[in-house]
Amino acid sequence: MTDAPVTTPRQTVAVIDYGMGNLHSVKSALEHVAPEQHVVVTSDPAVVAAADRVVFPGVGAIRDCMAEIKRLGFDTLLREQIATGKPVLGICVGMQALMDHSEENGGVDCIGILPGKVRFFGENHTDSTGAHLKVPHMGWNQVHHNDHPLWDGIPQDSRFYFVHSYCVIADDASLVAATCDYGFQFHAALNRGNLFVAQFHPEKSHTVGLQLLKNFLHWDGKA
């Protein structure tokens, strides 16, 4: 008699939908790297709470995003889910919304799970030579990362895809998982415990972005 093959239990990945942005590309990228896992886009708090992993993406103006996040109770739910120890990934505005405060829309208080602020690049943004830099920061840029498990298999200074006019500066340097330079150095990714957040869009960053998503889907939530 031969031993039965060992199978990995199917996990559920909840992509939080609070009505801000097309989440199809996030869902498709997750399904591509882990077809054995069940990926669901949902605005149902019960589905998020029951999931094994949570992805918190977002695009758009922070005032509108925060209004919907609070209306749906996702601010409280995210705190609860992070507290359970399950892996949570924030993307773009999903990262910014977890900070204390954003300068966007005249100043907006965010969820406040991660200490730090979201600041505007500026109307007349320049590099160190004084050359004009377009805002929003849109396109490919190098990311310099630490040795966190989500960077496994991703070469140092790989290029990821960004679309943003506001950037994160964390108060606590120990949270910084990656930096990027666009006129000045900003924090491209942060990590605390089972929470990892990124300003860039891994779902639009080709091979290295897919590798990061694959790493997340196999991550145990520990650094």
Rank of each mutant, 00 (worst) to 15 (best):
Phe56Cys: 02
Arg53Asp: 02
Gly85Glu: 10
Cys65Ser: 13
Phe216Val: 05
Met99Ala: 14
Val47Lys: 08
Arg53Gly: 02
Glu80Asp: 15
Gly85Arg: 11
His206Leu: 11
Leu210Glu: 14
Leu72His: 12
Thr7Leu: 15
Thr7Ser: 13
Phe120Cys: 01
Phe162Asn: 05
Asn22Cys: 05
Thr42Cys: 07
Lys70Ile: 09
Ala49Asn: 09
Ser174Arg: 14
Phe160Pro: 01
Gln11Pro: 01
His32Asp: 13
Arg79Thr: 07
His137Pro: 02
Phe160Cys: 06
Ala34Thr: 03
Asp181Ser: 12
Asp152Pro: 00
Lys204Tyr: 04
Ile111Arg: 04
His164Gln: 13
Leu30Thr: 07
Val40Ile: 15
Ile62Leu: 14
Phe186Pro: 01
Asn191Gly: 14
Lys117Gly: 09
Gly19Ser: 10
Val197Asp: 01
Ile69Trp: 02
Gly221Cys: 08
Leu114Thr: 02
Trp140Pro: 12
Gly153Glu: 10
Cys65Asn: 09
Asn22His: 10
Leu30Gly: 03
Gln11Met: 12
Ala49Gln: 14
Val88Lys: 04
Pro115Asp: 09
Arg71Asn: 12
Thr42Ile: 08
Val26Trp: 08
Arg10Gly: 00
His125Tyr: 01
His148Tyr: 12
Cys180Trp: 02
Gln81Glu: 15
Asn215Trp: 11
Leu114Arg: 06
Tyr166Cys: 04
Ser174Tyr: 00
Val47Arg: 11
Val39Trp: 07
His206Gln: 15
Val54Lys: 03
Arg79His: 15
Ala14Lys: 05
Val15Arg: 06
Leu175Met: 13
Asp17Tyr: 11
Gln96Phe: 09
Phe160Glu: 00
Ala29His: 07
Leu77Met: 13
Lys214Arg: 15
Gly221Leu: 10
Ser174Glu: 14
Gly116Asn: 07
Val176Lys: 10
Val6Arg: 14
Arg159Ile: 00
Ser174Leu: 01
Phe56Arg: 07
Leu213Gly: 04
Leu217Glu: 06
Ile16Ala: 08
Thr207Ala: 15
Asp100Gln: 10
Lys214Ser: 14
Gly19Ala: 09
Ile91Trp: 07
Ile62Met: 15
His32Gly: 00
Val54Ala: 03
Phe200Pro: 08
Ser158Ile: 03
Ala131Thr: 11
Leu133Trp: 04
Val108Lys: 07
Gln185Trp: 01
Thr42Gly: 05
Ala67Ile: 00
Cys65Tyr: 09
Pro87Val: 05
Ala97Leu: 15
Gly130Asp: 07
Val93Trp: 02
Gln11His: 11
Val15Cys: 03
Asn146Leu: 01
Phe186Tyr: 11
Ala51Pro: 10
Asn194Ala: 11
Gln156Gly: 06
Leu175Tyr: 05
Gln96Lys: 09
Asp157Phe: 01
Leu114Gln: 06
His32Thr: 13
Asp64Cys: 00
Leu77Lys: 09
Leu77Pro: 10
Gly183Pro: 06
Ala223Lys: 13
His101Gln: 12
